[in-house]
């Protein structure tokens, strides 16, 4: 789980081009959207594609996205519970 959280932080920084952030700047429970990392709806699409491509998880219910992408902690837990690769 700890490795997965570090991996997610690195992927988010790289895929979303968050030039000002380093892995150690992101706390596990920091909100990803809004006041935290400041991600937006386009980033949400990037994250959905990332889950599908890297972990084989398809998010069929968009309403769930808000809970899943709340923080690194919630994302990692969701991936642990649902990953297919």
């Amino acid at each position: 789980m700890e490795n997965l959280k570090q991996e997610l932080k690195a992927k988010i920084i790289e895929n979303l081009n968050l030039e000002d952030f380093k892995v150690e700047d992101i706390e596990d429970n920091d909100p990803l959207f809004g006041d935290g990392l400041g991600l937006d709806s386009i980033d949400a699409l990037e994250l959905i594609v990332m889950l599908d491509k890297d972990y084989g998880i398809k998010i069929s219910d968009p309403k769930k996205g808000k809970e899943i992408f709340e923080s690194i902690q919630t994302m990692a837990q969701f991936i642990m519970d649902n990953k297919t690769k």
Partner: peptide, 13 residues
């Protein structure tokens, strides 16, 4: 690379 799958929006936009 991804065989026409997993296309993200940013580069396209």
């Amino acid at each position: 690379d991804n065989k026409e799958q997993f296309l993200t929006p940013t580069a396209f936009i």
